[in-house]
Every structure is written in structure tokens, then in C-alpha cells.
Simulated scan of single mutants.
Amino acid sequence: MNSEQIEFKKLLGQTQKEASIKACLRVGDEQLECSGKVVHAHSIQRGKILESIADGGGENEGKIYHLGFSPAEDMQSMQPEFKLQGIKKFSTFTGFCGGHDKAIFQPIEDVAFSATTKQQNIYAYRAAAKELHSNLESKTFCEVLLGDKLNVDDFPPHYQMMLPHIKRGERVVPDFILEVILQGEKNHNIRIRHMQCGHSISELQQICDNLTNAIEREESSEFEHVYHALEGAFPIACSASFIPYFDHDGRRIISKQEEQRVAQSSAASHADMKNVMLNVFPEGGKTHIIFTFSKGNLSFKASIERLLKLEDEALKIGLSNIVLNYVENSAYGPKYINDNFSPDQIKKIAEVFAVSAIDRDKFRKSDINLFVARPTATTQRLVPGGSGRER
């Protein structure tokens, strides 16, 4: 890592620290008083799931791979890659006090998974809560970046009309004017992101409230689950909430018009919500898959029913497409990845992940199957750019 990369990471870390939120999402809970001390809660369970996936352990902290980005050497782009991280820190968020973290998730942490409705509700709730907390921090991050420009329109319509002509070289303006216009465009995009975070927060809070009522009061939920189990405990896990614009095959299931509505406003009712929660985890010799979504989201339900009718290999490829295109909070066993995929395949996995991570309106269909048979060989290939150290 060169000096520019180190400085970039330092500045990013400082901004993220300023935007961090440490508050219990269940404050005001009638059934359990908040303990007051917010903990680093795992969105993917450490003891039962991450430890089973990780390499190492014992006296040394176990480590997993996750997909992420690092700045390129020339600092002109961000490069996707598998990154090594210890399980104590991976997938944590500061969204619960110790009391609520224990009380809410005990039925899935201390009890074997048996796919009961309550357990599936809890898994879905944790995924939605993690995404809610992420959006709260993203919204604050935008506010930190914008400062006093949060409510200032420094990218008026005539700048918006002018900029494409400038970028194509059809119009020339003084450098100081160009700098103002480009900064205005940047601030405008951050304000759009700030607004979208607000819409997401509103919907995710409603989802969390509905699932909480179902879990704690056994009330009927506006959300349903589709559960499937793969034979074999693959060392892959994820917990995520996302809006799927495409199905596993890259076909649109949310129209362009509906996508614009989602970007510009919150859903009017639970039935209109497009958020989907996905949990994947190995336990008891199987890999469990839970899709949770609004009962009104019929197009997504139909797409999952199509997926589950496929033969085993095609189903696993389709599921891999969903995970790589929509999920950032995922963990993989390092030895499993290194032993089962060639360097070219590993690079391709990262590239598929990068496409939609950068632009959520894009879907990269591939023939990658993440759920392959466990290796029997003892040799281990090294991921390009990897050194076996935490990065």
C-alpha cells in the first residue's frame, strides 16, 4: 500500500468515524429496558456460523474472506477483491445494546435451526436491522460530506444542461467555472443519495417494526418466507436486505417506472415494499437459504419459485448470481475459495460483485457456482494480491 492509499484510507476512516451511529434500535421497547451499553452486534452469528466458516481459530482469531474494494495503485479507481478479516470484527454493527442483542436473537443462537416461522422472522429482522443501521450511517455520512451545502442548490438546471456539452468538448469554460460546476454535480449526487437513504430508512423501520411484532407478540406479519436447503454445509454465509431489480437470470422483475418510484419516494404500504431479506448459512450438514419479502411482492415471489424449480447445478448458479449481484455482507471460507476456484475464477467472482456494487441498476449474469463440492486436496492456492494477512 503506497502513501496515497494510506492517506485515502485514513481520511475515509475519519469521515466514517464522524458518521458512525451507536444507538440501540430497540430503545423504547416495552418488553425489555435498554441496557444502555451498545455492543458490536454480529449480523452474521459469530459463534455458530462464522467460526464454522473461518480458517484458523483456537489461540489465533479465525478469519474469513469477504468481497470489498481497495484503491488501485494509481488511486484512479477502486479494485474489487477478496479481503481477509477476523471474525471478531466482520459483519458487526453498533445497532443494539447488549440486553436486546441477547434477548432478540437467542432463539437462533442458542437453539438448533429448525426453520420455524419465528426463527425465520428473527433472521429476516436481523438482516433488515443491519441494513437500517447502514442507511442511518450512510445518511449521516452524506451530511458530514456536505456540511453547510446540505440544503444549498449549487447545481442549478443551467449547470446540469451545460455539463454534458463541456464533458464532450463542445463547450469550453474557464477552469474556475468548471471546478464549481463539477463540485456542484458531486454535491448534487450526494444530496440524492441522502434523500434515498431517508426513503430506505422509513421503509426499513416499518419492516423492522412489523417483524418485531410478529416475533414478540406473535402477530401476523405482512412478510412471508421462502425457505430452501442445499445438501452439504458450504462455508458461505450472508445476511442482507436489498431491492432486486432483476431475477437470477438477469431479467427485470421491477420495471423502470417502478424503479423511479422506489428512488423518489417511500412505499405507501407494506404491500408496495420491494425490499427482500436474504440469509444463507451452513448448519447441521446443510446450507440454509431464507428469502423474506412482502406478501404483496408477487413478481419477486414468482421469480424465486422459478429459481427453485431448476435442476441442482442451475439452481446453485442462479443463487450465486443473486448473492454476488445483491449482497455485500457475505463471508466465505478462505481455504474453500482458494482450493475450489482458479485465480481467473476468483477474479471473475470479484468482477461480478463489483458491477452491481457500483451501480445497483446493473446486473451481471454469470455461470459461476459458489456452492461447489468441498475440496479433498490439501494444497492451497493464493488469491492474487493476497498475502495471508488481514487487509
Rank of each mutant, 00 (worst) to 15 (best):
K118Q: 12
C24T: 02
Q79M: 15
P157T: 08
L32H: 11
I166W: 04
K362D: 09
D344A: 11
T376P: 01
E222D: 15
N213L: 13
A373Q: 14
V173F: 07
K167W: 07
E259C: 02
V372N: 12
I304L: 06
E131T: 10
K335A: 15
S255A: 02
Y65M: 06
N275Q: 11
K9T: 03
S330Q: 14
L11W: 02
I21V: 13
N275W: 12
A271L: 11
K256V: 10
H133Q: 14
D55G: 07
A115G: 02
Q205A: 10
G86N: 04
N338E: 15
I358G: 08
N325E: 02
Q257Y: 06
D209G: 05
F141C: 09
G86Y: 00
L230N: 06
L136W: 02
A354K: 15
H40P: 04
V39N: 12
K37N: 15
T376L: 10
I253P: 03
G318D: 06
P282M: 08
F155A: 08
Y227L: 09
I177W: 10
S35G: 10
S3M: 12
S239C: 08
F293D: 03
L319A: 05
I108S: 00
S77M: 10
L132N: 00
E219I: 00
G62I: 07
K309D: 13
R193F: 00
P384T: 01
V327Y: 03
A103N: 12
K335R: 15
R391L: 14
K48Y: 07
P235G: 03
S77D: 15
E131Y: 03
E109S: 02
A267M: 06
G99E: 09
A263Y: 02
S43T: 11
G86H: 05
A350W: 05
V323Y: 00
N325M: 00
Q380D: 10
H158S: 13
